[in-house]
Design a protein around this nucleic acid. Structure first.
Length: 494
RNA sequence: CGGGGUGUAGCGUAGUCCGGUCCAUCGCGCCAGGUUUGGGACCUGGAGGUCGCAGGUUCGAAUCCUGCCGCCCCGACCA
C-alpha cells in the first residue's frame, strides 16, 4: 500500500485531505490558503462547468466578464454588503516594485501607492451594478441575464482544500429585471437549475429552502439555497440564489423608465456555485479506498486494464484492448486504456479506485477466449462480464445504473440523517446520533437562532420549501417553547 | 486571532531528551538491467540532502540557546 488513506472513522478531516491529495485532484501551494487544482481536479471542474453552462444558456443567460479589481468605494455603497465582506478582502495598494536599495531584493515602491485602493473581488455585485447603470435606461433594456465564470478572493482565516480556500473558482449570475415578481422567479428558477445539476449530475440529493435572516447573503432581501449532507453528518451549502430586491439598484442608482413613463429602480438577482462542489462530491460519495465519481461528471468514465503473463499474451490483449478502446470512444464514452508495463494490474486497480473511476474493465487471455470483458463497478465493487458484441450498450446501461445508484445511496443516507425532534434534549442528541439534519420548531427570532448556535454549534440550514419535507404545521420552539409556525432544518455545517 | 502539532531526499520517516560512533536511518517512489504480471511484485546496481531560515554556544550542532518563518489540525468567522 503505497498510498495509505486515513480511514473515515479514524479522522474524517484527514481522510478528506488524503483523498483530495492522493487522488490527484489538488495540491497545496506555496501561498497560504490557496491551492493548486491539478489536471484531474480541473477536468472534473470543466465537466461541471460544461453542464452548468449549458443549463444557463438554456435558460437564456449569456456569459460576460467583469474586472477582478473593484474600487474600494464601490464596496461601501451597499451597507449590508460591505459589512458582510469587509473582514475578508484582499486590497491592492501599490502598482510597482523596485529593487531594495538596502540590497534585500525587491520591495514595494513607496512612491507607487494607488490613489484609490482596489479590492480583489470577493463577489462582483458592486462592479457589475456600477456597469449595469450605464446599460439600462428603459424597460426595453431589461431583463439583463448575465453569468460570469471567474475567480474570487475571500481572505478566510481558516482554509480547507476546495471547501474554503482564499481564492476559488465559481460562476456568478447577475440579472436585472423590471419587476420584483420577475426577479423572484429568476432566483427560484436558478435554484431549480442548481437542484437539477446537483441531483442528476453530481448524484447529490439536496434540500431547497430559504435562508434565515442571519444566514442571508450580505445585501440580499431573500437568499435561497440547496443544502446537501456529507458522510460525517455535516451539512454543506451546495448553491445559493439571491433575490436582491432593489438594494443594489438603489446603491448604484440604476433606474429605468417603465411602461408608464415612470422612473423605477431595477430588480436584481445573483446566484452562484463554486469549486466547493468538488469537495461536496468527495465527501458525499467517497469511501476509505478513494473517490467515487458520478459517471456524468467523471473525467474518466471507463478504464481498461490489460492483464497478461508474457509478451505473446501482451500483444494479443493489446490488440483487443485497442479495438475496445476505439469502439467505446466512438460511442462517446470518456475511456482510457492503461497499458503501462511498469506497474501490475493490481496496482492499477487500486489506483483507479482511488481516483474514483466509475467502471473498470479488465481484459486478459481468459476474457478474450470467452469474448467478454470483466467489469467492476467502483460504487458497489460488483463484478460482471460483458460480451464483446454488446459493449457500448451494456456500458452505457451500467454507467446510467451507477449514476442512479449513487444518487439513491446518498439519498438514503441523507434521509436516515434527518431527525424530527420536539425538545431540546432530543435536539442535542440527534445532532450526535444519528447526526445530520435536525428538523425542529423555531420561534423565528434571531436571538433564539444565535442561542441555538452557541449551545449546539448547529445553524439553521434552511427553511425548506413546501413539499421538501413533511409539513407538521405549527408547534413550539425547540429551545424557548414559544409558538412556531413551522419546522426548520438545523445542522452543523461546513 | 487563540490552542495544538509539525518542519530531515519527490513522499512518509529514524535520529533531537542525553552534542562526537551521523560528510545522516529506513520504507515508498525515481533511474538502469533482469525476472515478473488476474488485487498496490521481486532481485541487483544507482542517483538524489543548504537536516525550515538566521544568529549564537562549542574543539565539534539535525541534536543545546535565541529570534524568525512556513505548513497542517482544532476553535472563533465565512461559500
Amino acid at each position: 500500500m503505497s498510498k495509505a488513506i486515513t480511514p473515515r472513522a479514524q479522522d474524517y478531516a484527514q481522510w478528506y485531505n488524503d483523498l483530495v491529495i492522493k487522488s490527484g485532484l489538488a495540491d497545496y501551494s506555496a501561498v497560504r490558503g490557496c491551492m493548486v487544482i491539478k489536471p484531474y481536479g480541473y477536468a472534473l471542474w470543466e465537466n461541471m462547468q460544461a453542464e452548468l453552462d449549458k443549463m444557463f444558456k438554456d435558460t437564456g443567460h449569456q456569459n460576460a466578464y467583469f474586472p477582478l479589481f473593484i474600487p474600494k468605494t464601490f464596496l461601501s455603497r451597499e451597507a449590508a454588503h460591505v459589512e458582510g465582506f469587509a473582514k475578508e478582502c484582499a486590497v491592492v495598494t501599490h502598482y510597482r516594485l523596485k529593487n531594495d536599495p538596502a540590497g534585500g531584493g525587491v520591495i514595494v515602491d513607496p512612491e507607487a501607492a494607488l490613489e484609490e485602493e482596489l479590492i480583489v473581488r470577493p463577489t462582483s455585485e458592486t462592479i457589475i451594478w456600477n456597469t449595469y447603470k450605464t446599460w439600462i435606461q428603459s424597460y426595453r433594456d431589461l431583463p439583463i441575464l448575465i453569468n460570469q465564470w471567474a475567480n474570487v478572493v475571500r481572505w478566510e482565516m481558516r482554509t480547507r482544500l476546495f471547501l474554503r480556500t482564499a481564492e476559488f473558482l465559481w460562476q456568478e449570475g447577475h440579472t436585472a429585471h423590471a419587476t420584483a415578481e420577475e426577479a423572484m422567479e429568476e432566483a427560484r428558477r436558478m435554484l431549480d437549475v442548481y437542484t437539477q445539476f446537483a441531483e442528476s449530475f453530481m448524484a447529490l440529493p439536496v434540500i431547497r429552502g430559504v435562508k434565515s435572516p442571519a444566514e442571508r447573503f450580505a445585501g440580499a432581501v431573500e437568499t435561497f439555497c440547496i443544502e446537501a449532507l456529507m458522510q460525517d453528518g455535516k451539512a454543506l451549502q451546495a448553491g445559493t440564489s439571491h433575490f436582491l430586491g432593489q438594494n443594489f439598484a438603489r446603491a448604484f442608482d440604476v433606474q429605468f423608465l417603465n411602461k408608464n413613463n415612470e422612473q423605477e429602480y431595477v430588480w436584481a438577482t445573483s446566484w452562484g456555485v463554486s469549486t466547493r462542489l468538488i469537495g461536496a462530491l468527495v465527501m458525499a460519495h467517497g469511501d476509505d479506498d478513494g473517490l467515487k465519481l458520478p459517471p456524468k461528471l467523471a473525467p474518466i468514465q471507463v478504464i481498461i486494464i490489460p492483464v497478461y503473463k508474457n509478451d505473446t499474451q501482451r500483444a494479443t490483449v493489446h490488440t483487443q484492448a485497442l479495438e475496445i478502446l476505439e469502439q467505446l470512444k466512438k460511442a462517446g464514452f470518456r475511456v482510457q486504456y492503461d497499458d503501462a508495463d511498469h506497474v501490475r494490474p493490481g496496482w492499477k486497480y487500486a489506483e483507479y479506485e482511488l481516483r474514483g473511476v466509475p467502471l473498470r474493465l479488465s481484459l486478459g487471455e481468459r476474457e478474450i477466449q470467452q469474448h467478454q470483458v470483466e467489469a467492476v463497478r467502483r460504487d458497489t465493487r460488483e463484478k460482471l462480464y460483458l460480451p464483446f458484441d454488446q459493449l457500448p450498450e451494456k456500458i452505457g446501461d451500467l454507467l446510467d445504473q451507477i449514476q442512479q445508484d449513487m444518487f439513491h445511496q446518498a439519498k438514503s443516507f441523507r434521509d436516515q440523517h434527518i431527525t424530527t425532534v420536539d425538545n431540546w434534549d432530543d435536539f442535542l442528541r440527534a445532532l450526535e446520533e444519528p447526526g445530520g439534519f435536525v428538523y425542529a420548531h423555531w420561534d423565528g427570532t434571531p436571538e433564539t437562532e444565535i442561542r441555538i448556535k452557541e449551545l449546539s454549534k448547529a445553524t439553521i440550514r434552511c427553511i425548506p420549501f413546501p413539499g421538501q419535507l413533511p409539513d407538521h404545521g405549527s408547534g413550539h420552539c425547540v429551545l424557548t417553547g414559544k409558538p412556531s409556525a413551522r419546522r426548520v432544518l438545523f445542522a452543523r455545517a461546513y
